[in-house]
């Protein structure tokens, strides 16, 4: 269940969809609400519009916030400046934000990059990537990926970034995070 209400959104964040399951092919009843085993985040390699190639595998050892968004999506626009601040505060602490735009037109995304002064890489995604992440059938959707490359949480809709930051702090304190060696 998702809602624009913060409380429900937080609850919705507890929904974790297996990476291999195409959401549109599975009913709600078939999808687990709590991941029995934290699934590995599907790897991808995409050209960033504001930087080099984004290879998710290279961020192993960091906590990754993977944000699916679009330029015309109001909740997404609300979230972006907060993610920029979060990235600024935590860059040296092993946290990496990655934006995946689902815009149809890259020119709108490039304009947004100028407007929002993103300090994290942004690439344009497609339906295949969306389905590998369990289906992105509404925006925004933000995944928190642990240092070991496994999906910790999925947040659907506009989410309180403080909740996400607390989650990030928890992950950073985990032993396996400390032990993980960043690839770069």
């Amino acid at each position: 269940m998702r809602s624009s209400g913060t409380g429900l959104l937080i609850a919705a964040g507890l929904l974790l969809v297996p990476c291999s399951a195409a959401r549109s092919a599975a009913s709600a009843a078939e999808r687990p609400t709590v991941a029995a085993a934290r699934p590995l985040a599907p790897e991808f390699s995409l050209p960033a519009l504001n930087g080099k190639q984004i290879d998710l595998a290279k961020y192993r050892g960091k906590v990754v916030l993977l944000d699916f968004w679009a330029t015309w999506c109001a909740p997404c626009r609300t979230t972006i400046p907060r993610l920029v601040k979060l990235q600024k505060r935590n860059r040296d602490r092993g946290v990496q934000v990655i934006g995946i735009s689902l815009d149809d037109d890259p020119r709108a995304v490039r304009a947004a990059l100028r407007q929002f002064a993103f300090n994290y890489p942004v690439a344009i995604g497609d339906a295949a990537l969306a389905e590998r992440y369990g289906g992105i059938l509404g925006l925004p959707v933000l995944f928190v990926i642990g240092c070991d490359g496994r999906i910790e949480h999925r947040y659907d809709g506009e989410t309180d970034l403080e909740v996400i930051e607390r989650r990030v702090e928890t992950l950073l304190k985990r032993e396996r995070c400390k032990a993980a060696e960043p690839h770069h």
Binding site: T71, W72, R77, D103, D104, D105, R107, A108, R110, A111, A112, R114, Q115, F116
Partner: peptide, 11 residues
């Protein structure tokens, strides 16, 4: 679109 520059098709 406040996010799109002038002249972009996805204004």
């Amino acid at each position: 679109n406040p996010l799109a520059g002038s002249g972009t098709p996805a204004e």
